[in-house]
């Protein structure tokens, strides 16, 4: 038994301090992303999530130009982008797609400029890789309180707005008939999404931020028809995928032929997708292809 466990968990996994920090931060952002993600999937705003994460990552990576903490840079730029989407018209379901796209395009353009200007200053363009793939788990322990604070802010906001947000996500019409400020609720949600996505982009990378936002939530929604349970399940799936992915990435240092560490983001994304496919396949066919 011990040898089996030893074969799965390579020695040193639990005693390594960077791994522990990664596991803590990863779990934290996985929970926040999964909880926000349930509403994202229900509201059909996966593209907004992806775009805000990308913009946060591209712009935020250039935060060092201004000499501020990257957490502030990511979150600030993502929130600004969310505000721009809102102003352009992200509320109408049909215009939302285009508004999101235009802001994302402009954001990418700006990022190209900032990176170029950054290269002029530092004569390296190493940040580009960080931008696209994120740089999982390179934050310092001193960033943990900031990440914790923003994460808590998102969760508290969602808890406070839980019922109105749920009703407005199910049917804006029913919410409006009760006199709820549907648009304001939408803005508050979009801001929470921006912070959550930027947070995961800065901690674990832009790819993972979308994967952890959409994957666990979509899987949980296929498994249960109770909103409270969907939230809890999504959070658990997110944390499980993150930890298992970290474990595999750690193990992969010992894998033949090269003894080269595979990136955690690959494992986590693959696990999230496998989980989703397993649940979707179990549920079987006969489902209409929603657009």
């Amino acid at each position: 038994m011990a040898t089996l466990l030893h074969a799965i968990v390579e020695p040193g996994f639990f005693s390594s301090a960077p791994v522990r920090l990664a596991a803590e931060m990863g779990a934290l952002v996985a929970i926040v992303a999964a909880v926000v993600g349930v509403f994202t999937v229900v509201r059909g705003q996966a593209f907004s999530g992806e775009a805000l994460g990308d913009i946060g990552a591209t712009g935020g990576a250039s935060a060092y130009l201004a000499g501020i903490s990257s957490v502030w840079g990511f979150v600030g730029i993502s929130v600004l982008a969310a505000a721009a989407m809102e102003l352009i018209g992200v509320q109408r379901a049909r215009g939302r797609d285009i508004a999101t796209g235009v802001v994302l395009g402009a954001g990418f353009g700006l990022a190209a400029l900032l990176i170029y200007l950054g290269t002029l200053q530092t004569s390296t363009s190493g940040s580009t890789v960080t931008i696209l793939f994120g740089s999982p788990f390179t934050l310092s322990p001193s960033d943990l309180p900031l990440v914790l604070g923003f994460g808590a802010l998102v969760l508290v906001t969602l808890a406070a707005l839980y019922r109105p947000l749920l009703l407005a996500s199910i049917s804006p019409e029913l919410a409006a008939a009760r006199g709820l400020p549907v648009r304001l609720i939408g803005v508050a949600y979009l801001m929470a999404l921006a912070v959550a996505v930027a947070l995961s982009a800065v901690t674990i990378g832009a790819i993972l931020s979308t994967a952890l936002l959409v994957g666990p939530a979509a899987t949980a929604l296929a498994l249960t028809n109770r909103p409270g349970r969907a939230l809890a399940l999504a959070a658990m799936i997110g944390v499980a995928a993150t930890w298992l992915g970290l474990l595999l990435a750690y193990d992969s240092y010992y894998w033949p032929p090269r003894h080269h560490g595979w990136p955690p983001s690959f494992f986590i994304v693959a696990l999230v997708l496998i989980g989703y496919l397993a649940v979707a396949a179990r549920r079987g066919g006969g489902r209409r292809g929603a657009r």
């Binding site: 996966a46 790819i207 979308t210 080269h260 999230v272 997708l273």
Partner: peptide, 28 residues
């Protein structure tokens, strides 16, 4: 994926998986 799931979810999952592979390739 879009036959089973919402279209935006299918797109997001496909995208992140491709990017995940990309990060694997780059790491080598």
């Amino acid at each position: 994926l879009g036959r089973r799931a919402r279209h935006d979810v299918a797109t997001a999952l496909t995208l992140v998986f491709m990017l995940g592979l990309g990060s694997l390739f780059l790491s080598f």
